[in-house]
Amino acid sequence: MIELFSARQPKPFGWGNLILGILLIVLGCLSFNRPDKTLHLLTILVAIGLLLRGIYELWCRVGIKDLLGFNAGWLLIMAIVDIILGIVFLFFHNFGSTVIVYIFAFWFLFDAIADVSTISLFSRFHGPAWTIFMVIFSILQIVIAVIMLFQPMLSAIMLVWLISFYLIVTGIFKVVQSF
């Protein structure tokens, strides 16, 4: 049994991970330098995602109707809304970017409220130190969310920085993985 672990074959060099890692690092650095273009690209990607989701929902509606004989009108409404939003985001980038920024700010706020609502649950399992940490973190998160709602440019910059940071960190992990 021990011989199986000691006779392990060396892992071949991962060129794909290296190339992907370098590409992600370069994209992360570029997005740090051009936050306006990054937000613009994000808006286009969300628009394409909404269009594809709307088409998929229409396809699902037909499948549900054929398979179950059930007329899923709510899927039709969701599909139409997704397709309209996708088209609006695709052709009106400034509006789409603004909506995405506010969605990000509201997401942050709702997540903070959810954290506050679970503090009592966590206090039962983790003790007072964790509870104090959660209270402080949740209050800080709510304050940041409110600031983001009233300062949409700050929210946009934070969103781009998060994306850039994620790209760079993932790129570094891929480069390390290649060895």
Rank of each mutant, 00 (worst) to 15 (best):
V135M: 09
F92R: 01
L149A: 05
S117E: 00
F108E: 01
A105Q: 12
I136Q: 10
F95W: 12
M153F: 14
F150R: 09
F104C: 09
S155C: 14
L121W: 13
H93Y: 04
T131V: 04
F137E: 09
F108D: 02
M153C: 01
M134T: 07
I100D: 00
F125S: 10
R124H: 09
S123P: 08
A112P: 08
D115Q: 15
F92T: 03
T98V: 15
I136K: 05
I136G: 03
Q141I: 01
I144G: 04
F137R: 15
I136A: 12
Q141H: 15
I144R: 08
F104D: 07
W130M: 09
P128A: 09
W107I: 06
M134Y: 12
I142F: 06
Q151C: 06
Q151D: 06
R124V: 07
A129E: 14
M134S: 12
I144V: 03
A114W: 00
F95L: 09
A112M: 03
I144L: 04
V101W: 00
F106N: 04
L140Q: 03
I119E: 05
W107T: 12
A129V: 13
A114G: 05
A112I: 06
Q151E: 01
L90A: 05
I139N: 04
V146I: 04
W130L: 06
M134V: 07
F133W: 08
F92E: 03
W107L: 07
T98N: 11
F106H: 02
L154W: 01
T98W: 14
S123L: 06
I144Q: 03
F125Q: 05
T98S: 13
T131S: 13
A112T: 06
I132V: 15
F95C: 06
M153V: 00
A129W: 11
I147K: 09
S123Y: 04
Q141R: 12
S138Q: 02
W107G: 14
T118R: 09
F108N: 10
S123A: 11
I100S: 10
V99L: 10
I103A: 06
V101R: 05
